[in-house]
Design a protein around this nucleic acid. Structure first.
Length: 425
RNA sequence: GGAGAGAUGGCCGAGUAGGUCGAAGGCGGUCGCCUGCUAAGCGACUAUACGGACUAAAAUCCGUAUCGAGGGUUCGAAUCCCUCUCUCUCCGCCA
């Protein structure tokens, strides 16, 4: 969430940011409520001050054995008034808080202004799209032909948008998880976290999934406040919720494997075939906590760390910077890494690397002390997929398919596959 | 699931016949003094949020709130009552 004081002092800037995003939020109402709240606070605090003072007097009088009945009666009235005002204040604050939680982050100045994904700007490209001298198959056909992916039986045991991985397919998925975790922990210096896949409402609110996007999340009904995580970003970022970190602790780099669960409300009919859009998928997630100065630089590094996975797997990709209209709710700047997907005949998002600046940190109260004795400041949080595993499996199947229907295993994965170099029937 | 114990500041730990308690004491930390250096010693300081005054902005000052969370009783609650959460011990069940 944004700093209330910032909104109060720069309403035009916030308005402009909202417009660039194509988002709506009732700023005027917000400002009105904010002023109302301050006026009420000022009044009630005067009363409370009076009550505190006179209560002390009453205590003194009682000790001396003097009568204080009259004063007690008067304070009774004051207390009643305070109670009423406190109620109004907490109502106003709740309204204010609700509004505040629905105002998205302000895009960084370096983010291009645009309406939708067509206005995203390509930043760089690595390798050319894969060329075939035969007609390539989509990965769901490859998976079925090799008997390593089974969407029909997944439909039977659960429903649509689920997959069963079998044999070498299951092994490939697991190999990718291990490969990515090893790369990021051993080479890039991230600390491995294995988080809960279920979180509470505070955590979902802290990273910005709630309250606005509740319909996208799977909710557990035997405990009304538990949710399946849509990404490891949620538990890992919330690791330090309500904490003040020492300056020396920063930057913190975490990498976490997790299952991810998404209701995919509103995407009915999109990417219905294959592994691209599932209710459950695997992801290795990179999360950083940094100070305020270095977060932009850290975003570049984080994106490069994610890109390296694709480079080592030798999968063609490009990097785009999301425009203001396509930017995620909590993000100030996002790079999408898109892998070449032959069945789509275009690049498909496989990682999204974002700098949230202090937006999540303010929601989740994650702070650091710049110097000993100094006032705590909000950290900057960043995260990015490193990578989405299901989509990586799909990309490997499609880009590495051979004319005979087999799939070559990328060199770096072979040691994770028991030396297997090819999947064939 | 059953029975019991507990949750206080960065940490440890006082504080229950309600009344200057934001909270004793200790540790840790910061600054100053002392010292040839180190150790020891002495002194001061040692939370956060919000609102206000002042300010270019800070610093500073004033006020309010915060003793797991929320609600209640009361002129007044860390202290009494209710609800919830979490932790610990024992029993049961279980991968």
């Amino acid at each position: 969430m944004l700093d209330i004081k910032y909104i109060r002092q720069n309403p035009e800037k916030v308005k402009e940011a909202l417009e660039n995003r194509g988002a709506t939020a009732d700023l005027d109402k917000f400002l009105k409520l904010d002023e109302e709240r301050r006026n009420l606070l000022f009044e009630v605090e005067k009363l409370k001050s009076q009550r505190n003072q006179e209560s002390e007097e009453i205590a003194r009088k009682k000790k001396m054995g003097e009568p204080a009945d009259e004063q007690i009666a008067r304070m009774k009235e004051v207390s009643q008034k305070i109670k009423e005002m406190d109620e109004r204040i907490s109502q106003t604050e709740a309204e204010l808080q609700n509004l505040l939680l629905t105002i998205p982050n302000i895009p960084d100045d370096s983010v291009p202004i645009g309406k939708c994904d067509r206005d995203n700007a390509e930043v760089r490209r690595w390798r050319e799209p894969t060329k075939f001298d035969f007609t390539p198959k989509p990965h769901w056909e490859i998976g079925a032909d090799l008997d390593i992916l089974d969407f029909e039986r997944a439909g039977k045991i659960t429903g649509s948008r689920f997959a069963v991985y079998k044999g070498a397919g299951a092994r490939l998925e697991r190999a990718l998880v291990n490969f990515m975790l090893d790369l990021h922990t051993e080479k890039h210096g991230y600390k491995e976290i294995f988080p809960p896949f279920i979180v509470n409402r505070d955590s979902m609110t802290g990273t910005g999934q709630l309250p606005k996007f509740e319909e996208d999340a799977f909710k557990l009904y035997n405990n009304t406040d538990y949710f399946l995580i849509p990404t490891a970003e949620v538990p890992v970022t919330n690791l330090h919720r309500n904490e003040i970190l020492p300056k020396e602790a920063l930057p913190i780099y975490y990498v976490a494997y997790s299952g991810c669960f998404r209701a995919e409300a509103g995407s009915a009919g999109r990417d219905t075939r294959g592994l691209i859009r599932q209710h459950q998928f695997n992801k290795v997630e990179l999360v950083k906590f940094t100070d305020q100065e270095s977060s932009m630089e850290e975003l570049e590094k984080l994106t490069a760390d994610a890109e390296e996975v694709l480079k080592l797997l030798e999968l063609p990709y490009r990097v785009v910077v999301l425009c203001t209209g396509d930017l995620g709710f909590s993000s100030a700047k996002t790079y999408d890494i898109e892998v070449w997907m032959p069945s789509y005949n275009r690049y498909v998002e496989i990682s999204s690397c974002s700098n949230f600046k202090d937006y999540q940190a303010r929601r989740a109260k994650i702070q650091y002390r710049p110097e000993k004795g100094a006032k705590p400041m909000y950290v900057h949080t960043l995260n990015g997929s490193g990578l989405a595993v299901g989509r990586t499996t799909a990309a490997i199947l499609e880009n590495y398919q051979q004319a005979d229907g087999s799939v070559v295993i990328p060199e770096v994965l072979r040691k994770y596959m028991g030396g297997m170099s090819k999947i064939s029937v």
